[in-house]
């Protein structure tokens, strides 16, 4: 298992895309911070900082592509049989891929977190006290940032667990990527309809798409009126669905003939 994880990390770190992704995030984060300065909207600077200069949204796309690719590329390159014909079971192979992707997502979040704090130090516009509070918030700015970022991370993995599931079922990276991206945008498109339906029929609030609202709800407490779920329910629901989708992925993958 340790060896499988080592192999997955080796592949990840030798891929150019991995480093392009990191480089892109650096430029994106600093670039957005600069845009915020240029279009000088001082009132929004704090919100912008709390939101990590929108980097988490870009991380979502990068991670969806990376997770879908980590399975589908093995079929594309015909390397899955090299991976499988080692001493380890298929489940161990999939788990090692999850762990490598978890590591990658933590790397990206760490990078973005570092940059976000660096922006705070470098740009005069963002040099506000991190202990200040936003209107309507009971906690300090840095705590806002931490809450938002953690919730983002959790919902990211809800999406990724679906991407892994689809990639393990279909071997097709493009389909898995599309599922993730559609899932990401579906929220914006169908949420109004979904909220109306939830109002009419309460149990519908437990559907997984509703749980994607978690990351927004932690920064906009009013949203709980629409989702009918508390932040705590959201958190555990996310973890529950992640576990469920991953178990399903494990089941399909362990049946896979190569």
């Amino acid at each position: 298992m340790k060896n499988l994880y080592r192999q997955e990390m080796f592949k990840l770190l030798k891929r150019r895309g991995t480093w392009w992704g990191l480089g892109f995030l650096v430029l994106q984060n600093i670039g957005f911070a600069w845009l915020g300065v240029v279009y000088h909207t001082h009132t929004l600077a704090k919100e912008f900082w709390v939101a990590g200069f929108a980097s988490p949204a870009f991380i979502v796309f990068m991670m969806i592509a990376a997770c879908a690719g980590s399975i589908s590329s093995e079929f594309e390159y015909n390397t899955m049989k090299n991976v499988i014909t080692q001493a380890y079971s298929r489940s161990a192979v999939l788990v090692s891929k999850w762990l490598a992707m978890l590591t990658y997502s933590l790397m990206l979040y760490g990078l973005v977190g570092g940059l976000t704090f660096a922006n705070h130090i470098v740009w005069p516009d963002y040099r506000f006290a991190l202990t200040a509070t936003l209107p309507g918030s009971q906690q300090a700015l840095w705590q806002d940032w931490l809450t938002a970022t953690s919730a983002n991370f959790v919902t990211l993995w809800l999406l990724l667990s679906v991407v892994f599931l689809v990639a393990a079922m279909l071997k097709k990276g493009l389909v898995a990527t599309l599922c993730g991206i559609v899932g990401y945008f579906a929220l914006g498109v169908i949420s109004r309809l979904m909220f109306q339906l939830i109002d009419k029929w309460e149990p519908l609030k437990w559907n997984p798409i509703n749980f994607l609202n978690y990351s927004v709800q932690v920064t906009m407490p009013l949203l709980t009126k629409l989702t009918h779920l508390t932040n705590t329910q959201m958190f555990w629901g996310n973890l529950g669905y992640i576990g469920l989708f991953m178990l399903l992925g494990l089941y399909f993958f362990s049946q896979k003939e190569v």
């Binding site: 592949k11 150019r16 390159y77 015909n78 090299n82 014909t85 080692q86 001493a87 079971s89």
Partner: peptide
């Protein structure tokens, strides 16, 4: 499902599986 015995087996089936972005040496290191 359980094939720990394959630890002592090497194989080439049909055509070789290859990561195009790795060098040959890295492929073996992997």
């Amino acid at each position: 499902r359980h094939h720990a015995a394959l630890a002592d087996v090497g194989a080439l089936i049909e055509y070789p599986g290859i990561y195009p972005y790795l060098s040959g040496r890295n492929q073996m290191k992997l």
